[in-house]
Design a protein around this nucleic acid. Structure first.
Length: 833
RNA sequence: GCCCCGGUAGCCCAACUGGCAGAGGCACGCGGCUCAAACCCGCGGUGUUGUGGGUUCGAAUCCCACCCGGGGCACCA
């Protein structure tokens, strides 16, 4: 047997096993992936990197357990697997903790990282520890700044004044994506609007590509995420139409998806908070101006919650101005209202109350005319009720009426016809709009990447030259980090005051920092060459490893991070730095870990502590429980699963290795044939199951194999049978994906070393061939008999056997036989007359 | 309102391209081992596959409608 010392050779003791193997792995480093002469094919498996806001929790434990199954599987399949880890270490939690405790966010962050790193090692994650990166380190964020300046040069980073989302609690602006149901994603405070000049990344430049290329991800990304991104981008096709405004030189453009209803327009609406509304009101009488001013004040006071609440009554102000409908010359009164958004389309609409619910609500509230221009019918052919009476707009398909040349056309035909007509007349054209907005990246907070721009009175916005990067954060010491609506960096006068890189004159640094989602938009590329000092990443390494073969992480990032990372990838591709446009070839979203139906989060208190679970049941049991609980994308309710049951199973598996008495390398051919068949069937099935992410089923299959092996040891073949060794080794290799400590210990008892690097055994196909197959004999779809037949039996032969089967004969009785369906060798169905 | 996912035994969940509804686990019960217990070993699975219809020789699986649960988007013209 083996010379490996064992604490207690009769009992599975997870504490002793963890203590035994952790130092061995630490020394042997089985998951290094950096060697240039490594000829194995490559795989890049990536877990979303954690935020260091404390120790690892149950959610991390699930994510890393599942990512590890995939990574370890590909290693055993002979791939050179890159499985790196790092920390997303800039952000508000560190800053808020620093404010609360009066400490430096850097120290707090580094302490948490050290703790998480130790926990990950204990958790036996198969990470390559030579590639660690942390986004708060200057050697990382320097390249955020470098990429920022490249985007700036290409017009993809720009500054503009706009009504932005403002969190009154965190005292900073937020991206659209960070406002959830009108609340700040971080602190759940109701978000308000504020007019500010801020930095944006031009994500909308790639809107079409971001949407269209989702199709290529179908099948390898969850359909849910694809749907969410599709919704978020929200492409709509329609037309821009010009309306002349009385008393204004320039016409104004409106956007509509329903140009077919142009003859049904009875008024126009401009967004109350838009510049256009202010300008139009300026040209009205004093009373109107006063009314408008009061209305705008009221609208500005509303937070997002109020604004989004459904079925609130429509409000607005008639601006005493008129637009002219280009198709029929009608005068349309212009109203200002908050139901039109300033930053979508042109911030102005034509209102067709008969065929748009919002316009109808407004028309009814303001007593404006309604004109039906589409004859809509229900399924029974009954006409749609009068919208004025029913309050329901006719938004469906129909035939055009009251629309001159369009009369008689169907909706789609009318849209095409009128768009062509507008185009010919020079008053409109087909147009596309997106719900997606550009990404606002400025933050008025300390703990982030400084924006590498210098503001010079003479030269304007000047990017900091590459050789002066990084622009490092000034020390937090002496700065007031409390949120106050202006970046804490503004108080670092020595830091702010600088010289203009272009003209050498006095200039000021931009005092905002970047949204931390910038950091995570390209970190997967930095992992390929984390120490590189003359560029963000090595293009040669990118060619070798990227894009990522398998990305693993929570569905919470379905829009934010994944969309931004896709945008960065496309932008970097267009800069010629990489040759692919999609960063993540395949995506697995694990579910959440809950307790009694409620989520475990910081705010609700962590209901189950990972460290306590690990102490009580061991690392392997927790990892196995995560994998066995159900499909990875389903949420796990910790109350429904049994880490104790997992521990029991591991002990049972472990005892197999303990009991094997044959020597390593013994030829299994002479072993128990029945057990060998189970072993090789498990082997054949497991790789498909792992690659299909059915980890819970793999575990079930391994349990079956363990049961079969135990039966062989105790009952038939005995512990010396070579098939028992073969089965035990297969159990060990498969188990190492889920329970690396237990598997390593078993592997050692079986006389081997480094189970993580064990080769996935070849499947012996000849053992999968069954000698007989059970054939079901059905009569009228009901099972009436069973036959043991050879797998190669002919259709005719089986048909005869089935017709003679006693159960079938009995069921057929006197009835005649109409048809016999034969699916050799598994099924015959006899259809009686 | 629109979109996505799900509903199988007391519970968590399997079930290939439509072909025997049950792999694995939890819980529970019984038996063995033991002075006794724990551990361990063994045995124990009929249920409206959410409901109703349709297609089919045959439906958990495909189609339609609805119910329930979860998630996303939503005054985006």
């Amino acid at each position: 047997m083996t010379e490996t010392p064992q604490t207690d050779e009769h009992r599975y003791d997870f504490r002793a096993i963890e203590d035994r193997w952790l130092p061995v792995w630490e020394e042997r480093q089985p998951f290094r992936s950096g060697r240039e002469d490594d000829a194995r094919p490559t795989k890049y498996v990536l877990d979303m990197f954690p935020y260091p806001s404390g120790d690892l929790h149950m959610g991390h434990a699930e994510a890393y357990a599942l990512g590890d199954v995939i990574s370890r599987h590909w290693v055993q399949k002979g791939y050179n697997v890159l499985h790196p880890i790092g920390w997303d270490s800039f952000g508000l939690p560190a800053e808020n903790a620093a404010i609360k405790r009066g400490v430096d966010p850097a120290g707090w962050t580094e302490d948490n990282i050290a703790q998480q790193k130790a926990s990950m090692k204990r958790y036996a994650c198969s990470f390559d520890w030579d590639r660690v990166l942390m986004t708060h380190r200057p050697d990382y964020y320097r390249w955020n700044q470098w990429i920022f300046t490249r985007l700036f040069e290409r017009g993809l980073a720009y500054r503009k004044p706009s009504q932005v989302n403002w969190c009154p609690n965190d005292q900073t602006v937020l991206a659209n994506e960070q406002v959830v149901n009108g609340l700040c994603e971080r602190c759940d405070t109701a978000v308000t609007k504020k007019k500010l000049t801020q930095w944006y990344f031009k994500v909308t430049e790639y809107a079409d590509e971001l949407l269209d290329e989702l199709e290529n991800l179908r099948g390898s990304w969850p359909s849910k995420v694809i749907a969410m991104q599709r919704n978020w981008i929200g492409r709509s096709a329609g037309a821009d139409v010009s309306f002349t405004i009385e008393g204004r030189d320039e016409p104004i453009a409106i956007y509509t998806t329903r140009p077919d209803t142009l003859y049904g327009a009875t008024f126009m609406v401009v967004a109350a908070d838009s510049d256009l509304a202010a300008e139009l009101a300026e040209g009205a009488d004093d009373a109107t101006r006063a009314e408008f001013a009061a209305y705008v004040e009221r609208v500005k006071g509303e937070n997002e919650i109020d604004r989004l609440s459904t079925d609130r009554p429509k409000t607005g102000v008639f601006l005493q101005r008129y637009g002219i409908n280009p198709v029929n010359g009608e005068r349309l009164p212009i109203w200002a209202s908050d139901y039109v958004l300033a930053d979508y389309g042109h911030g102005a609409i034509m209102a067709v109350p008969a065929h748009d619910q919002r316009d109808l609500d407004f028309a009814r509230a303001m007593d404006l005319p309604v004109r039906v221009v589409l004859d809509c019918r229900d399924d029974a052919g009954e006409p749609f009720g009068d919208p004025v009476e029913t309050g329901v707009a006719a938004t469906g398909d129909g035939v055009l009426v009251n629309s001159e040349a369009l009369n008689g056309l169907a909706k789609a035909e009318a849209i095409a016809a009128i768009t062509a007509e507008l185009e010919a007349a020079g008053t409109g054209h087909a147009s596309t709009n997106y719900r997606l907005r550009d990404w606002l990246i400025s933050r008025q907070r300390y703990w982030g990447t400084p924006i590498p721009i210098v503001h010079c009175e003479t030269c304007g916005e000047v990017p900091v030259p590459d050789d002066q990067l990084p622009v490092t954060l000034p020390p937090a010491e002496g700065l007031d980090l409390k949120p106050k609506g202006q970046s804490p960096l503004a108080a670092a006068t020595d830091w702010v005051n600088t010289t203009c890189p272009t003209c050498g004159g006095a200039a000021l640094r931009d005092t905002d920092t970047m949204d931390t989602f910038v950091d995570s938009s390209w970190y997967f590329l930095r992992f390929l060459s984390p120490q590189k000092t003359d560029g963000p990443f090595d293009p040669v390494q990118a060619k070798r490893w990227a894009p990522i073969d398998q990305y693993v992480g929570g569905v919470t990032h379905a829009i934010l991070h994944l969309l931004y990372a896709r945008f960065f990838t496309k932008a970097l591709r267009d800069m010629g730095m990489i040759d692919f446009g999609e960063p993540f070839s395949a995506l697995l979203n694990q579910g959440m870990v809950q307790m009694d139906g409620s989520a475990m989060s910081k705010s609700r208190g962590n209901l189950v502590r990972l460290s306590e679970q690990l102490d009580e049941f061991g690392v392997d049991s927790i990892r196995l429980t995560m994998a066995f609980a159900g499909p990875p994308e389903d949420d796990i309710d910790w109350a429904d699963v049994s880490p104790a049951g997992s521990a029991k199973f591991l002990a049972r598996a472990w005892r197999l290795a303990r009991d094997v008495t044959s020597e390593p390398g013994v030829d299994p051919a002479s072993g128990d044939a029945a057990l060998r068949a189970v072993t090789h069937r498990t082997l054949a099935e497991s790789q498909e199951l792992v690659e299909g992410f059915k980890f819970n089923v793999v575990v079930a299959r391994v349990m079956e194999l363990v049961n079969a092996t135990r039966k062989a040891i105790d009952g038939g073949a005995g512990p010396a049978d070579p098939a028992v060794r073969e089965a035990s080794e297969v159990v060990t290799i498969l188990l190492s994906l889920f329970a690396p400590y237990c598997a390593e210990d078993m592997w050692s008892m079986l006389g081997h070393q480094d189970v993580a690097l064990a080769t996935y055994p070849a499947v012996d196909e000849s053992l999968l061939v069954e000698e007989t197959v059970t054939c079901i004999v059905q009569v009228m779809g009901k099972v009436r008999d069973r036959l043991e037949v050879p797998p190669g039996i002919s259709q005719d032969e089986l048909r005869e056997l089935a017709l003679a089967a006693p159960g079938a004969v009995r069921a057929i009785g006197d009835a005649g036989i109409r048809t016999v369906i034969v699916r050799a060798p598994k099924l015959v169905n006899i259809v009686t007359a």
